[in-house]
Design a protein around this nucleic acid. Structure first.
Lengths: 250, 250
DNA sequence: CGATGTCTTGACGCTTCTCAACGATCGTGG
DNA sequence: CCACGATCGTTGAGAAGCGTCAAGACATCG
């Protein structure tokens, strides 16, 4: 494998900003320091499935680059988008309960993922208590993310859901650093709608409305943030207070 | 503590049907076989909090009897019910990510919970690999439950959400055994509404409608299941097919 | 017995879903 | 190179569902 060397430098660059780097380092599995890293990395062209519903789930996956969605098909054939997964985030926890995936994971763009075999994680966790704690922390974080989804869905007004969706995306892409002023959405309006529980037309109208109000500038999937504080306000407070004349709760 | 003996027999009865019994046995912590069990059990009168948002979370909790709800207060003062927790189910995973609870857990009825200190769980997990796997399984299951909540919220029609809510409650109360024909809801219409993302009046109307259609008989919080197959159908297929003349998908 | 909390039911208005047409972009093939 | 179709996004009009406001029934508790 003479091509390992370029891969390693590539991976080192890719791991540096990864939110799960410490996790991977401690797990000792797919970090560049180890020679057999390349085996753990999987390339996923746009549209391809990482796993399907019903598949046996022996690994967790870390998104290294690109973006994925997890979808569940309901009995009546409707598609539910359960989550979007950005670089540095975990995919595949839905198989922890019974060893089988309950959803399908599909690449929204050309992506790379690291596979973390659960068995090896557990073995390492038995040897190193810190990894066990880190594992809990990471899994708990993913659970928290699911709760974030619930919070979005509980929002009544479509505009609030969309603002919260955008804000959440920005914060996750920033991963602690400064928020981006511009981003390219890896998913379609329909997929956003299936994630937010809205019709795709409503999503489109919501974006247009945010643009009319001068909060963002939108051209298809390209979104520019014009008024970040306002977006933050729309996302976290509840909607219809257009004026800064709100002052509830003592 | 001379009153330990009656407690132990009580606990043994309570643990027998518990879905987490194997988990607790392997963890070796709050199972009747140990003498100091009583310390791990906490009585919670109706309306009392098990923990509040912001509290440090050092334990997971197993519901032994009664019922809890976990709620989050949003920035605008609205109450979101994140989940209901029935006997044999886990509460408190929301603190795994950062060690602090993101929500408040409140007893809907007089309840008993077992505390499982995370530190001790991890220590035991380090010694016994099976426990580590079991821990992952249980946590994964709770994550799956959150996804179930998402599935409910994605349902457009109020009637579908309510049917799915009832069916889910029945299945969880049954815990693998035969479904009950009658149940007493531990939560109010308003709490159901805050869980389903509906107004309390809509919840009330939904129950009335199910009664008009002969699916259930409802008197306040007392619910009798008259047509279980129909309820199952309403919950899993999408709503408006009143006739059994549906046959989609090849 | 009155007060309070909970549940039910009605009427009305608004948000959003549905159906529909149109424009833009991109990849394909002539 | 351009025409063509397909996919995606936008926008409009109408209808249906749900939230809101309001009133009343019922049970519990002081």
């Amino acid at each position: 494998m003479g091509s390992d060397l370029p891969d390693l430098t590539l991976l080192r660059r890719a791991c540096a900003p990864c939110g799960l780097r410490n996790f991977c380092q401690q797990s000792g599995l797919p970090f560049p320091a180890e020679a057999r890293v390349a085996e753990q990395v999987r390339r996923l062209p746009r549209g391809e499935s990482l796993f399907r519903a019903g598949d046996a789930g022996k690994s967790l996956f870390v998104v290294r680059s690109g973006a994925l969605k997890t979808v569940a098909i309901t009995a009546d054939g409707a598609e539910h988008v359960l989550g979007f997964h950005l670089p540095g985030e975990l995919v595949g926890l839905d198989s922890l309960a019974d060893g089988r995936h309950g959803a399908e994971a599909i690449a929204l763009a050309d992506s790379q993922v690291c596979a973390l075999p659960v068995d090896q994680l557990l073995d390492r966790g038995t040897q190193a208590p810190e990894l066990g704690r880190e594992l809990l922390r990471v899994i708990g974080g993913s659970s928290t993310q699911c709760l974030g989804h619930v919070e979005v869905l509980m929002r009544r007004q479509a505009g609030e859901r969309i603002a919260l969706f955008l804000q959440d995306l920005l914060e996750r892409l920033a991963a602690g650093r400064e928020l981006l002023r511009e981003l390219h959405l890896p998913m379609s309006r329909e997929e956003i709608g299936h994630y937010l529980g809205l019709a795709l037309e409503t999503v489109s109208r919501g974006f247009s409305r945010l643009q009319d109000e001068g909060v963002i500038r939108v051209a298809g999937r390209q979104v520019e943030i014009l008024d970040a504080p306002r977006l933050r306000q729309l996302a976290h407070s509840s909607g219809p207070d257009t004026d800064p004349s709100l002052k509830r709760r003592a």
